[in-house]
Simulated scan of single mutants.
Amino acid sequence: MTIYTPWRKATSFLAGALLLAGCSDDKPTKAEKVAAASVPGAPPQAAADEAAKGAPASNVTESNELIEFVYAYPKEAAQIPELAKALDSDRAAKRAALVAAAERDRTAAEKEGFPYRAHSHRQAWQRVTETPRFLSLSAEIETYAGGAHGMQTFDTLIWDRNRRKQLKPLDLFQSGEAFDAAIRDPFCAAIKRAKAAKGMAVDEAPDSVFAKCPPASAQTVWLGSSDGRYLDRMTIGIAPYEIGAYAEGSYKINVPVTGALVKAVKDEFARDFLPIR
Rank of each mutant, 00 (worst) to 15 (best):
P56C: 06
G54I: 11
E177I: 10
P81E: 07
N254A: 15
S225I: 14
C23W: 08
F179P: 02
Q79H: 13
A139T: 03
T235F: 03
D272L: 01
S12V: 14
D185R: 14
R8T: 12
T11A: 15
R161A: 13
E50Q: 11
R117K: 09
Q126W: 12
A21E: 10
K266F: 08
E32I: 00
I276F: 07
A247R: 15
A190L: 05
F173A: 03
S89L: 09
G249L: 13
I191Y: 07
T143R: 15
F134A: 03
A216T: 06
K165G: 04
A108G: 04
S24G: 15
F173R: 06
T131Q: 07
P81V: 06
L14S: 10
K9F: 13
D155I: 09
F154T: 04
P40H: 05
E76F: 11
A247H: 13
R117I: 00
E82P: 10
Q123G: 03
K168C: 01
F187L: 07
D272G: 00
D227R: 02
G237T: 03
R184S: 05
P28H: 02
Y246L: 12
D26F: 01
D26R: 08
V265M: 03
P56F: 05
E68D: 14
A48F: 15
P214S: 06
R193D: 05
A145P: 00
T29S: 15
A145Y: 12
K53A: 15
T11L: 13
F273G: 05
F114E: 07
W7H: 11
L20C: 12
P132W: 09
E177W: 04
M200E: 13
G228D: 07
L20Q: 14
S38C: 12
L167T: 08
P206C: 12
Y73S: 03
D180R: 07
H119I: 00
T11D: 10
A57F: 11
L135Q: 03
P6T: 10
D267T: 13
E204W: 04
D105K: 15
G249I: 11
L98V: 08
F173E: 06
K195V: 01
E204L: 15
E140W: 11
E50G: 00
K195N: 07
T5G: 09
L170D: 04
A48S: 11
Q126N: 10
G199M: 04
A100Y: 10
I158P: 02
P6I: 11
T29A: 04
T220Y: 06
R193I: 02
A181Y: 05
Q219S: 08
R106L: 01
K192W: 07
T235W: 03
P215E: 13
S250N: 13
Y71H: 09
A93R: 09
R8P: 00
K212N: 13
P169T: 08
L14G: 07
C213P: 01
E32N: 04
E242S: 15
V34Y: 08
V255E: 04
G150E: 05
P132L: 08
K53Y: 08
A247T: 15
L170P: 02
A93N: 10
E110Y: 02
A31F: 08
I191A: 03
H119P: 01
V60D: 06
L157P: 02
S38T: 14
A270L: 07
P214I: 11
A270F: 01
I236H: 02
P81S: 04
V99N: 06
R106W: 00
P43Q: 14
G259P: 00
